[in-house]
């Protein structure tokens, strides 16, 4: 009788424990749910609209990306049987083009940097062009939708550096020839080239160059500018090739 009672009691305690466990869990979950908005949203409607606009922009770029990738997929599928290698080559070429490893011929603008003749005549000493000025010009060019740029025959790629090495201004570690030299700027369309021409004319760069005793001559946009390929090996520190079967 006593043994039976003990078992019964043990059983009872187990049940009560389970019930209390459930109660504790429910209370904790309820507490979590109530405490959820820890930070109040205090933005006004304009801030939210701005954020929305930004997200919309991202949305549209993502959609454009998806479309272009879908096109590639479609092309892969179409030519799967006939000519897979051709499509792959095409992709490789496109990537090479993006990275700046190929010559590009297309519409563009040619800028010429030359020493200001009247200052030379006055006996001013013409120094090296400063890397800062070149960097600023380059940033501005990319802002005006430049597709590819070559400074004095040195193609600018994503790892290019413009810097001062022992008093010599270098691009891709190649010293620039003393002025005059030319900057080739390629654009995607002739219209973009015209727009860039106007933008540079309107910018303060001509004055900035003149402060350094240079004339920045901007030539009329042309349909055919050839921008040379990047001729040095591209180093890659982080990406590695995946071996077959890994």
């Amino acid at each position: 009788m006593r043994l039976g009672g003990a078992i019964l009691k043990k059983n009872m305690y187990t049940r009560i424990t389970i019930v209390l466990f459930i109660i504790g869990l429910m209370i904790a979950v309820q507490y979590n749910t109530i405490q959820k908005p820890a930070e109040r949203d205090t933005r006004d409607i304009w801030a939210i609209r701005e954020e929305l606009a930004e997200e919309k922009k991202r949305h549209s770029t993502l959609l454009a990306d998806i479309r272009s990738l879908n096109e590639v997929v479609g092309r892969y599928e179409q030519s799967e049987k006939t000519n897979l290698q051709g499509v792959l080559n095409e992709t490789v070429n496109r990537l090479k083009q993006q990275a700046g490893l190929t010559d590009i011929t297309g519409p563009g603008v040619i800028l010429r940097v030359e020493p200001a003749p009247e200052l030379v005549a006055m006996g001013y000493e013409i120094k090296e062009i400063s890397p800062d000025l070149l960097t600023q010009l380059l940033n501005e060019l990319y802002k005006y939708n430049a597709a590819s740029v070559a400074i004095d025959g040195n193609r600018i790629v994503h790892t290019s550096a413009i810097r001062d090495i022992n008093g010599k201004t270098t691009v891709n570690s190649v010293a620039l020839s003393s002025p005059p030299f030319e900057i080739y700027v390629g654009t995607t369309t002739f219209k973009a080239a015209q727009k860039m021409y106007n933008s540079i004319q309107a910018s303060t760069f001509i004055d900035s160059f003149y402060l350094d005793n240079f004339n920045l001559v901007i030539e009329e946009p042309t349909e055919l500018v050839t921008i040379p390929a990047y001729d040095q090996p591209l180093t890659n520190d982080y990406l590695t090739e995946v071996k077959k079967g890994e």
Binding site: L25, A28, Y31
Partner: peptide
């Protein structure tokens, strides 16, 4: 049991 439930939640 109660403490365990609370802690888990």
């Amino acid at each position: 049991g109660l403490v365990l439930g609370l802690a888990l939640g």
